[in-house]
Each structure stands twice: as C-alpha cells, then as structure tokens.
Design a protein around this nucleic acid. Structure first.
Lengths: 258, 258
DNA sequence: TCCCTGGTTGCGGTATACGCAATGTCACAA
DNA sequence: TTGTGACATTGCGTATACCGCAACCAGGGA
C-alpha cells in the first residue's frame, strides 16, 4: 500500500546517509530513472531533499525544521536541558534523556562527553532505545503500571545481543522487581558489550514515570561500579527535572509560595 | 507529479502542527477517508507519524532520527557547539549559528537565552533565514563572491517586512559594502520589528565565508547599541570557530607544531 | 435497545505513476 | 571544432497501483 510513499521514504533515508545521484536513486529503488526523478523532484519542491551543485541529492532543511518542531513540543526536553548539561560536567560522562513516547522509548536529548569515547556510542536523538536491554528502558518499565508494561512488552522479542542480555520475560521481570525497589537500573553491556549505563526515573506532576536520565560510558573509560558511584548526582538531577515538571516528593510537601 | 508523495507530506506537515484524526486528514487532503488511511498507515510503518492513544496521528520519531543524522553530519555544528554556549553565557543573549546550504541560509544551531524573551523568537533550527532581512544573511552575502551573491539573490523578491527592511537590491548592495568593510552586520528590526541582531562571519579552511554567528535580543531586553557592545566577544567566538575549521588568519601564520 | 459518529476492509474502475525510448546537457578528449 | 560517453530530462502509451464507494465494525450516548 502507498508504494510511492514508501519509495519516497526510502530515498529520504538513503539520501540522509549519503548523497545520491539520480542513477543511484533509481538503482536503490530498482526502478527506472524517470520514476526516481519524479519522486525526487517532488521531495525537492517540499525541501525534503536538496540538490547539491554536483547534481546529487541530500537531505533538505524542510525535514530538519519539522523535527525541531516535534522536539520543541516536548516540554520535558526544555525543562531538562540545563540539568543534563550540569550532570555531564559533574560526572564527565555522556548523558542521555529518554522519554516514553507511544509504545517506544526514544532518546530526546543527549549531552556528549568531551572524551573521545563519545564518538563510539551508537545512540542518537530520535532513535528508539531497546526496551529490555538498556538502563533507561528497564527503569521506565519497572515504574509503569502492569497494563502499561504488558502493552510495551507485547510485541517484544528477546534477542541475545551480548552475554549479559536478559534472555526472556521471566528474567526481565525479576530484574524489574529489583530495579523498582532500589529506584535505579543499570545496563551491564546488555546491548553493546562494552557500553555501560546507569539510569534513574523522571516523574511528571502526577507522579507517573514518563522518562529517564542516564549516564553512559564505555568500559575502557569507566566500569559499571564507577558509574554507580555517581548515582547521587544522577538522582539529584532527576529530582530537579521532576520538580520542574511539577512533581512533588512525598517527603517534601509543596511549600506555600506566593 | 507524485501526487501521493505530496499528499503524504501535507499530512506530515499538518500532523506537526496539530494532532490529526483520520477524518481530519481526509478533510485536509480533500480525499476519501480510506485514501488518507492508507497514506497514514504507510507513514506510521516508517515511523514518520505515530498513533496516539486517542487515535490521532502526530509526528513520529523516524523524522527526528533522520534530522539528527543530517545535523550530525554537519561538522561545523559540532565544532561550534561549545563556543556558542560560551558566547551565550558571556553575553546573556540568544545565540544563532547559520550556515549557507545550497541556495539558502538555515539555522543549524541555537542556544536560547535563559531570559524570558527567548520564547518570543521565531527562529528555529532547520528553518531558512531571510537572506536580505537578517544579520546573518547580510554578513554572509557581504563576504561571498559576486557570482555567488547573484545566484543567492536571483530569485529573491524584496518584501517590506517592517519600516527598516531594505527595500531593494540597490540599498542592499550599499549596506553590503559597509558590512564587508567593517566585518559585521546588524539587523535593526528588519524582519521582525523588535528583534535586533548582530552577526559576524565564520570562515572555512580556504578562507571562504560559509556561515555566521549572531546574538539576538528583543529591543525590550537590549537595544542594538547594547548588542554592538558585545562585538568583541562575538568576533572572538567566530575566530575560535573558524580556527576549528582550519582557517588561519593572515596575521597569525600556522605555527609549526609537532 | 437503537442510533450515531468515526475507523476499517474489499473490490472494481480509472486516474496516476510507470517504463521506454528519444532528446538534452555537459565534460573531456581527439 | 567535433565526437564520444555518462548522466539527466522529457513525452507518451500502457498497466498497475491507488482511489472512491459502500458495506462492515466498534464504541459511546440516549
């Protein structure tokens, strides 16, 4: 269904990776050049792709503008930005902000570590995070309602990415119980063998966990234990962000201001 | 040509503004609901839109991911990021980074001022900037070759946005001469009556001007003269970024390192 | 219970997008 | 200058992919 749209999207994706000549484009789609041309012309008119001087097509500004619009509408991102930056400076590690959006968890912000390991991290704003093989995924799963958890895990199939990946729903549930009790989750190289994370939840004004902050490092830079030492900083950041969202902790009733 | 693709893009655009029900979508396109459904299903499968619980469609994460990919590949953005933040802190004003891309100038990064005026600024990463009614536009125009300038202005029609907008090519050329001589440009509310900017150019390793940094404020916060006082900071930032790109100033020949 | 609003499915006709082949454009070399 | 090759573009007849219809669901209110 909607073949043409799929083809157009394929071209957009390809042109994001690598500039595309018309011939390339036709090749990629397995169609005639004239067909590819028509699609590209349409995309160009909408500024989804742009022609370079060399006659190749690359991603256009129309797309970037749209995505900024989407990200901008996420209040959480704005509230959190400054805190994330501070956390990065305090810990020295790469900081991620991930939000539960629909039935997936996506990174909505990232502050890279100035250290060189940053370039190795496969994360990217907008990308979906593994829900069972990441610290942010687990910490969010651990704090949502049972129905929500079922919904999120309904279509998940457990792939053994590395030695430490949780193998099935049962071991995940056991882990989630622990996470829920202590209030934070780790990723011991469960998705990428040498990538370690620690994540804590963020709550909205209703007290619901809707997002998570994490710090990440490759093992060469910091072991999981070393990351755990930063937990107080991480928890503090999450508390500050939650407060910005209007969450009031049980221990701290809202001060009658103004 | 490529009717379906155009329809799909219309839906993406609309869904970015406002969640869209299926009926809305059909209405917007002026087609039957089943037609709209097929397009939306395709977009959903590619994660360009997402279904909310309420059955409406909103922008999806696939788009965000793509745009991050595109922005991430822009070296300038990475090199500049830290300097832009410092400039923001030094000046207190909103900082923009704009790059000449194809035949338009687009914002590729932005550091908001913590002051409340930030929310009023209409700029947005990915959006094209007016080429004749903005400080970044003028400062770039002033420093490119004549052919390039002709190319960029070829299809421009001068709209009188405000009282101070330059009215035609002649007055623009006169302004560009001044800008070129002194090395920086201003925007005295030429696009939006109360928005003031000062911009300076950024050069690549060949010495070509390919981008510009600016500081922006609404007049209530700072007058144009007050912004001009920050010129040394602005120029310093631009120099640092240009250096990162490999530009060596005439006065400072490259030191023989290693 | 029925009704009503809004989403989903199956199907036949046709508008739409396709492939082809011819034409245009550019760069480089003879 | 002319020839050659690689690539982009245009026009057109055809068939296929998309459209609108109409019937079918699902949920919520009266």
């Amino acid at each position: 269904m909607a073949q043409t749209v799929q083809r157009a999207i394929s071209l957009i994706r390809k042109s994001a990776e690598h500039p595309l000549s018309l011939t390339d484009a036709a090749e990629v789609l397995g169609v005639h050049k004239s067909t590819a041309l028509r699609i590209l012309q349409t995309l160009e008119a909408e500024r989804f792709v742009r022609r370079t001087g060399a006659g190749t097509y690359v991603l256009g500004s129309g797309l970037i503008e749209l995505s900024e619009l989407a990200l901008g509408s996420m209040d959480l991102r704005q509230f959190a930005a400054e805190h994330l930056r501070q956390l990065q400076q305090q810990t020295g590690h790469t900081v991620h902000l991930a939000q539960l959006t629909g039935d997936e968890i996506i990174y909505i912000d990232k502050v890279d570590s100035p250290a060189f390991d940053a370039v190795k991290l496969p994360s990217r704003v907008g990308r979906a995070v593994s829900i069972y093989a990441s610290a942010v995924g687990k910490v969010i799963l651990a704090h949502v309602s049972c129905e929500e958890r079922d919904r999120l895990l309904a279509h998940v199939e457990f792939k053994q990415h590395t030695d430490t990946t949780l193998a099935d729903r049962e071991s995940l549930e056991a882990e989630l119980t622990r996470v829920s009790e202590r209030g934070w989750a780790t990723d011991n190289g469960e998705h990428d063998a040498y990538v370690m994370c620690v994540a804590v939840p963020i709550r909205d004004s209703r007290g619901q966990v809707i997002a998570a902050v994490s710090i990440t490092a490759i093992e060469v830079i910091a072991t999981l234990d070393q990351l755990k030492e930063k937990l107080p900083l991480l928890l503090n950041t999450a508390t500050l962000i939650s407060k910005e969202l209007g969450y009031v902790t049980e221990s701290q009733p809202p001060a009658p201001q103004d």
